[in-house]
Amino acid sequence: MDYNKIRALLEKYWEGESSLEEEQMLRHFFVTHTQALPEDLREAAPMFQYFRLEQEKEIPQPAARIVPLRKSKPWQHWMKYAAVLLIMAGVGYSVQQFRQKQHELIAADWTQQDTFDDPEKAYAETQKALQLLSRNLNKGTEQMEKLSYFNDATQKIKN
């Protein structure tokens, strides 16, 4: 091929104005040309040879993997089910415990209610209890009276 034609094509190539066909011609020229090139054409030769090598380079192609979506089987999620069961068992147990305690409390309340069926007997018992209380209260006030005597005496001395 005429070197001048190559020079003209190269000029277009460097400017980014060459067509794909012209670039193909350049690659073909620089790959197949075996004789010594003129000096001004030498710089481009390795580049076009590199492009050709890269074009021909075999890039290992992986096989397309089309993986069908697997339908999940129920037993694949056993941990989820186990967790739900565990939570349900826990909640059930605590509800049961709560209700049991409530029953016990209610039963205890019942035992603290009326202890006598007969109102007269109950009245007598209450009277007894109040008498005991008043007796003890009187004991206390007797002591307080002594204290007031003492207090009066100290007042007189002071005056």
């Binding site: 460097w14 030498r42 710089e43 481009a44 580049m47």
Partner: peptide
Amino acid sequence: EVKTNLHRARKAVREQLQNIQ
């Protein structure tokens, strides 16, 4: 823009190739 960038890219490669040469 493609042509301009291609021109600049090739120019950069050319300068490096000239250095080697």
